[in-house]
Design a binder for these strands. Structure first.
Lengths: 168, 168
DNA sequence: CTTTTGGTTCGGTAAATACCGAACCAATCG
DNA sequence: CGATTGGTTCGGTATTTACCGAACCAAAAG
């Protein structure tokens, strides 16, 4: 295993992670590869120029995608005294940020399903349908309620995982 | 609350759920609204024609998106004896399917981070860097390891949630 | 105060995605 | 059998998204 092989492995990994994160975190292809590149770095940060060169993209695209990733809380940068360059790196908080986003998403899903349930109950009331008379309906409604419970459990689990991470 | 108000509430909900599921489950706008419509139905299924009319989309678009949702395991249909129409409905298994997909995603994320760690260790080895000499590096590497543990915990939690759902 | 460096902004193009209409097929009906 | 119903397929267009180049700005160096 020499330096060349490692460079190849790096490029391969950037590509693999790139494809994965595109869907996983809904990033543009380039954003995703920038993120991957930073995740692989052992330095204190990677410069604009180096990112541009390794990914072979234009200055402007790199810039926009760096801004995008920063605004999403996925990366940030630091500077070194007497050096105007920015050293981009993965945001230390990014996992937390993403966990918080996931929690928000599940909360949203829960709220929506509560609204679905409430809508269905209104329909039943308006049409004077007794749920007990129709086992199919009964199953549907109880399924809804179960799903809401499921989202609650999911949210609780995510909160616990978050707390575990904070405790490290 | 009359029938008209309910119809309005339904359309509003379809729109809200539509927007949400587009990102949540990476569906096309129309797919997402079809899914929402089916989720709100109290009947045993909704016909092609009714979906088309409520969503005001073309026959072909409805068709393609119904196929897409079926291939993703999000919806399916049943037929009624002596009736050629298909009655589309939410797939009973869809939550399971989605949970399984989530588990697969986290497994993938775990694998990728293991590869990142392995890559980093190779870089250190090649450059004969002792991690103990550099607290920054040490933190980075241990962060990686913690993250892998985190993905494991996440996967376990998801599996438990899945089992709970199966037990209902 | 000109030049260079590091990065941003904006207008435009290329590519991907979502949707549509028309032609089509297969099953049923008259 | 031809007509109708229920749904599919395919070619094309509109919209969105991703990216680029060129002009630009601000800080520092010469």
């Amino acid at each position: 295993m020499n330096s060349d092989d490692l460079e190849k492995e790096k490029r391969l990994l950037i590509e693999k992670m790139g494809v994965f994160f595109e869907n996983w975190d809904t990033l543009s292809p380039l954003s995703s590869r920038v993120f991957a590149l930073l995740a692989l770095s052992l330095e204190d940060g990677v410069t604009f120029e180096e990112i541009k060169e390794t990914l072979g993209a234009s200055k402007s695209s790199i810039c926009t995608n760096l801004q995008l990733l920063q605004s999403k809380g996925r990366i940030d940068y630091c500077t070194k005294p007497g050096d105007r360059k920015r050293y981009f790196k993965i945001d230390d908080q990014q996992i937390m940020t993403r966990l918080d986003e996931k929690i928000e998403d599940w909360k949203q899903e829960k709220i929506l399903h509560e609204k679905v349930l409430s809508y269905k109950e209104k329909v039943l009331a308006l049409n004077k349908i007794n749920i007990e008379d129709n086992s199919n309906l009964k199953i549907k409604i109880s399924y809804n309620k179960h799903y809401i419970e499921f989202t609650e459990a999911m949210i609780e689990d995510l909160k616990k995982l978050k707390q575990n991470l904070l405790d490290i």
